[in-house]
Design a protein around this nucleic acid. Sequence first.
DNA 1: CTGTTAGCGCTTTCAC
DNA 2: GTGAAAGCGCTAACAG
Lengths: 357, 357
Amino acid sequence: MVTLKQIAEKAGLSISTISHILNRQSPRYNAQTRERVQKIAEAMGYIPNRYAQVIRRGRSGIIGMIQHAGLLQVAVLKSQAAARAIVAANYRLLAGDSEWSGSGIQTVCATMLDLRVEGLILIDPPASFPRDELDRFQKHRIPVVALGGVRIKGVPQIRVDAEKGMEMIVRHVAALGHRDLELVVPALPPRPSPAINWPTLERVAGFRRAARQAGLTAAQAKVTFFGAPNDIMSPYANGKAAMEQILARVERPRAVLFCNDDWAIGALAACAEAGVKVPDQIAITGFDNAPIGEYLPSPLTTVTQDFEGMAKAATDLLLERIRERDWNLEAPLIRVPGRLIVRRSCGAHAVSPSADS
Amino acid sequence: MVTLKQIAEKAGLSISTISHILNRQSPRYNAQTRERVQKIAEAMGYIPNRYAQVIRRGRSGIIGMIQHAGLLQVAVLKSQAAARAIVAANYRLLAGDSEWSGSGIQTVCATMLDLRVEGLILIDPPASFPRDELDRFQKHRIPVVALGGVRIKGVPQIRVDAEKGMEMIVRHVAALGHRDLELVVPALPPRPSPAINWPTLERVAGFRRAARQAGLTAAQAKVTFFGAPNDIMSPYANGKAAMEQILARVERPRAVLFCNDDWAIGALAACAEAGVKVPDQIAITGFDNAPIGEYLPSPLTTVTQDFEGMAKAATDLLLERIRERDWNLEAPLIRVPGRLIVRRSCGAHAVSPSADS
DNA sequence: CTGTTAGCGCTTTCAC
DNA sequence: GTGAAAGCGCTAACAG
């Protein structure tokens, strides 16, 4: 690899001069010299050694991002939006895809740490995110923010307003004349810490409130907790299994609401297998607006989020904390409202075909 | 951040001693001293400064990985498998998604270069991957390998045997009694270089050969090139549009074969919208075995790949080239056979319900 | 406008 | 067993 020294020799100048011209864009040099040096560097294929720069400058200029892209399209959308925001802020991005699991996450965090990220952004962190890894960042005064996911103590978070989102769906479904609603949410751990502020519980709250306002009885607004806690690996299978269980009952609900599109996709599969027509016999809704939702045989009614704006906000929050090194420990939770997207799966088109999008 | 110097002071030893003990696992020290030093380092939260290590050692220990796929589940599966292989080989991973930033691939490659990756693995590179970026790596003697994707000159590649895969599907579909097959493949650029060895063309070849062997006439084995060349951003939309066009024709094929599951998903949506039953009226197949394919209302018949094994092979190839710095320029193309997965979308279950998986 | 110099944190050779 | 010293590629304060 070409070094400043080699360029300096070739140009007959000193190393520091070359450094100034090449890596500091200093205007205080003779235009001719500057151009000549630039030409030489270009010709030799010089790439500044970032390791040397970082070690001298004392900062890495890197922001880390940890996600679990897995199967979920929305996680990818979020991380892409965050990546754009980070690059736009003139930072380099170090992306890590832990599978949110034991050794995966350790490895990723270790890389983040030894590459000295200046800040860390978590995409949809699960409740199982290891506390001690987080503490390590805290200890080294590396600020962390979360985009989506579960509330983590000391970590500022930007996410969709799950409660309001659920309310929108319930209101819409109820307005279509559906009674007997059922909300399916992933199971919580045995003793869910109330401090944690689970989006799931917010969804349940929104569901119940809106159902009440729509004049539904408690029996007409059932909530089912399903699956193993923190199981994010098999959303389709979970959705399918949950739906199968519902379909096996004597009395079926008229509409089943899911926490995300992926569970809803599994549910659609269960319905197809059982020969149950969506939305004619049963209505299904999702949440998050995964791109594929539009391309299912029964396109999903769902709630979308402003990924770009939220990612920007999360990044800004992070940058601010990076700047003022002495950030206090209050960690805001910012809920951003989503937007209802009506498609066929809820049965809206039986009522008013023009209501799409 | 804690440095060796600080630890040395606290321990009353010299920096080089600490360095040996901590970062070289040297056994040549007094066990007591070693333990004491380790304790101190632990307590102080020491993390070796990788920038300093790299600069001294002269190698980064990082392997880069570039992917270029947002919505496609299989790209994620491949990259996760590759990531595991890289970590298992004791390298750090630097992952970049070309979609992740404004000027995309440029930015990502720049990061790869200035973090001095020792090798680069490309996940499903498109034909549009810029040649000059590749040349830059070549020039700096950084080996590059591709896992899947389009054939690139000078880049060793491991991918599924597209031709054989297609043959398997055709044979299966023909055995079910379907005549009038149609293969839909993404359009190629105006003058596709024959040197490039397009997987698409291999698929076409496999399709034609197997059709002939099954006794189908040319008219019974149609090939349609669809969409804009190199458009990997909208697989669902493309599949849907292609299918709509087919459904609009007076004479419809009995089975439509797609190049990947994502196009097939779009096609299923088109069928549902048009009220065409899959597989009763028309059979559909995909390719790649995206996890969601199993959970569609008409689960997709498809071809799966050994992602883990292929990723391992690609990584091994890369490591070998990193090791022998003077790698010659012959770049093998290794085709790994896939495996047919039969589900409902092809109509197999109408014939023999037990043939699943 | 250009060059000298003193490091950044770490590794490694070689001497004690 | 341990430490002194040189130096990796680069930056920045300061001198000329």
